[in-house]
Each structure stands twice: as structure tokens, then as C-alpha cells.
């Protein structure tokens, strides 16, 4: 569903991403781990076509995102570290707006259902987003994925700054989506959450993907050791 082929991004002489290759199949949750500047966000930006690769390819459903940007964006939902919505619209209106941009049209009841499925309490649906916590905004992002019927989720440190309960709820939502066949690529610093939620792990260092493994191959302690080994 989602594939990086020798994906490289250079800014002048600096290499942000160096020939990275991996594949995320439907139902997989691929967690990218690494220090700041390791290339996690660059990888996600390349799949969003926010930046163009210097070489290599980012593919979604076998389509090159830099060539068929609009087509691939129909298939994905992106949730950044700090999902910002229009503060003067309520959750329902924001969902209606962004699904409208994605070319989908739903009635009010359906939009309420998406928000409820994403775990947002009913009384919050019609409250202005300016009063939302980060966790609530992330849930609107998940509702957007549901409404778009997204086949790919691109998450850039989505649980950063969330309290453990909200973080756990978010993980459960991701697992629920993966069971529906959604392929997820998540950049995170949270080793514990990556191990608990993900199906695959990739450790990045200075633009290189230095380790790839499945979560059932390793326990929490060994993951931490492995991670620190690469960071040193």
C-alpha cells in the first residue's frame, strides 16, 4: 500500500534522507523511531508530496506521489504532531470542511457518527475547536480518516504531548483502523507506544534507516537497548 524506494532528499549539501526503502502493507502500523533530525518527518513529508524527493520514489497504492499527488492524497489522511483546525468552526464543521476538500459530501448525522466512532464525546461535536484539547483535535483527525475512508494514515508524532489515557485511546483507534486494513506510517519518539501499537518498527539515524524489525521480535527492554545503541 505504501512504499519507499531508495527515497532520498537533499537540501543543498545536506542529506536529510538517504536511500531509504521500506514497505507498509494494509493493516500494518509502521513506526519510525529516531532522534530529532533523523529524517522521520522528511519521510512523511515526501509521502505527502510537501517536498519532492531528490531521487527515489514514494509510492502509495503503487502510484508515485510526486507524479500523482492529488490521486494519492485521496487515499491518505495526515495527522501532524499538533493537528490544527479552524478554531472558529466546531468539530462537526471542521470535519465537513475537510471532507468537502477531499471531495466527500456527508449529511450531519453521518458526520456525527464519524466523530463518535473516533471517540469524540457527542457534546463536543458542536463546540468551537478553540475549546478543544490536543487529544480532541487528534480525534477529529481520526474522524477525517474514517470519513475519507483513508487507506493510508500518515502520523507525525501524534501522541506527543497527550496524557497517557488520551495516548492509549489514540493507540486503540489506530489498532481499530489497522484491523480495517489501513496502512499506517507513524513517526514517534515514544518507544513504549510504538511497541504496543505498531506491527513494524524502523529506527532512523541521520537520514538512514538503520534497523527494521517487527514488534513481536523484540520486548520493551531490548527495544530500548537497541534504540540507544543506534543513538550512541
Amino acid at each position: 500500500m505504501l512504499e519507499a524506494k531508495q527515497l532520498t532528499k537533499k537540501y543543498n549539501d545536506a542529506t536529510a534522507l538517504n536511500a531509504v526503502s521500506f514497505k507498509v502493507n494494509p493493516g500494518d502500523i509502521f513506526c519510525l523511531l529516531g532522534a530529532n533530525g533523523a529524517g522521520k518527518t522528511t519521510t512523511i513529508n515526501l509521502f505527502l508530496n510537501f517536498v519532492e524527493p531528490s531521487s527515489g520514489h514514494a509510492l502509495i497504492a503503487d502510484k508515485d506521489v510526486s507524479r500523482e499527488s492529488l490521486e494519492t492524497k485521496k487515499l491518505l489522511t495526515y495527522i501532524p504532531e499538533n493537528l490544527t483546525l479552524y478554531p472558529n468552526l466546531d468539530g462537526l464543521e471542521n470535519l465537513d470542511y475537510f471532507t468537502g476538500l477531499a471531495g466527500k459530501k456527508y449529511g450531519s448525522e453521518e458526520l456525527h457518527n464519524f466523530l463518535t466512532q473516533a471517540g469524540l464525546q457527542t457534546d463536543a461535536h458542536t463546540k468551537r475547536v478553540s475549546a478543544y484539547s490536543k487529544g480532541m483535535r487528534q480525534k477529529v483527525g481520526i474522524a477525517l480518516a474514517l470519513a475519507k475512508d483513508a487507506r493510508v494514515l500518515l502520523l507525525d508524532e501524534p501522541t506527543s504531548g497527550l496524557d497517557p489515557k488520551a495516548s492509549n485511546e489514540f493507540s486503540e483507534l489506530l489498532i481499530a483502523l489497522s484491523k480495517k486494513g489501513v496502512a499506517t506510517l507513524m513517526a514517534t519518539h515514544d518507544l513504549f507506544r510504538a511497541k504496543e501499537t505498531g506491527t513494524h518498527l524502523g529506527i532512523m539515524k541521520e537520514g538512514n534507516l538503520v534497523e527494521m524489525l517487527t514488534t513481536d521480535q523484540i520486548n520493551h527492554t531490548d527495544l530500548e537497548k537497541l534504540y540507544l545503541k543506534h543513538m550512541n
Partner: peptide, 18 residues
């Protein structure tokens, strides 16, 4: 500047037209 643009342009819409 508010950050909402990232979500907007992750949608399948031409930024110019939008």
C-alpha cells in the same frame, strides 16, 4: 502560521484553486 494549512494541503485539492 496557524498550522491548519498542513491539513488543508494534505487533501486532494489544488492549492491554487483552493
Amino acid at each position: 502560521e496557524s498550522g491548519v494549512l498542513r491539513l488543508t494541503i494534505s487533501q486532494p485539492i489544488s492549492l491554487y484553486k483552493w
